[in-house]
């Protein structure tokens, strides 16, 4: 009996240790990067293209990042939402749905470098969009599609059936029911999907590096190339150009991720409250 007890305690100790490692890794990354980077961040650093002698600001990269986020979300959100509506509200279980599910899952599992290769031959070369915001956004919208489909699906499923029955019983058509009753209750879930997708776009490097290019200037339109913050960090680190600037850029990326996670959590807790 005593032996079992000490064995249990040993295992418990290992479990605690693993959990400490998990949280420790996060804290280590956050504290180390942010403490080295926060001092390097100044208003000039984020609001200028050029700051003084040979020092560059990151404004063009912020603009490129925002541009790619905007276009990707505009393309992917409607397709993702429509797709989820079909799967939850229209589709009858069977082969078609299974194939769509399998395709969505597979899309989520494809490595970003493969998306990059595909974007490079299809959008950049074959459709001749060049290295541009458009090529990058089209490629990324395929990458984030599964996230939006999945979160929208979950929030549609969470809408109680009585809502549907009530609306249809009052004589509203199916489409009207979806538009006026189901979608409004599903909005927090859909927004969560969009927010998570924005997080993925901000952090993406491999796919965007092959489709948006790496030029340093400010993008003026859809057909211009650019460089996102994440790609910029990759450059700074890979070429060893400036570790101070790399810490600062990494800190900004981490701050963006913190904000995104905070918003996603707030939305999720509102969704859970609505469910109860």
């Amino acid at each position: 009996m005593k032996k079992r007890h000490s064995m249990d305690n040993l295992v418990k100790g290992i479990i605690y240790l693993s959990s400490i490692v998990t949280v420790g890794v996060l804290l280590w990354i956050l504290i180390y990067v942010v403490s080295n980077g926060i001092g390097e961040i100044s208003w000039d650093f984020i609001s200028q293209t050029q700051m003084g002698e040979g020092e560059e600001g990151i404004l063009p990269y912020i603009v490129s990042t925002l541009y790619v986020i905007l276009i990707t979300i505009i393309i992917a959100t409607p397709i993702g939402i429509f797709s989820a509506i079909y799967l939850v509200e229209y589709a009858k279980p069977g082969k078609v749905v299974r194939v769509i599910r399998f395709a969505t899952e597979s899309l989520a599992g494809i490595p970003s470098i493969v998306f990059g290769l595909y974007g490079l031959i299809f959008f950049v070369t074959f459709l001749n969009f060049g290295w541009s915001i458009l090529s990058g956004s089209l490629t990324l919208s395929m990458m984030v599609l599964p996230t939006i489909v999945r979160t929208t699906e979950e929030s549609l499923k969470a809408v109680p059936n009585t809502f549907r029955e009530g609306s249809l019983g009052l004589g509203a058509s199916k489409l009207r029911t979806i538009r006026k009753v189901i979608l409004p209750s599903a909005i927090p879930g859909i927004l969560t999907g969009v927010i998570l997708s924005i997080g993925r776009i901000v952090g993406e490097t491999a796919a965007i590096y092959l489709t948006l290019g790496t030029v340093k200037w400010m993008p003026k339109g859809l057909m211009d190339g650019g460089r996102t913050l994440a790609v910029h960090l990759y450059y700074l680190a890979k070429e060893g150009i400036s570790f101070e600037k790399a810490y600062a850029t990494a800190t900004i990326l981490i701050l963006i991720v913190l904000v995104i996670n905070f918003i996603a959590n707030k939305l999720a807790s509102r969704l859970n409250k609505a469910k109860q």
């Binding site: 890794v25 990354i29 997080g199 901000v202 952090g203 790609v231 990326l253 995104i260």
Partner: peptide
């Protein structure tokens, strides 16, 4: 941890 960009 899931949200931190891979390049970071």
């Amino acid at each position: 941890l899931a949200g931190i960009p891979s390049v970071v």
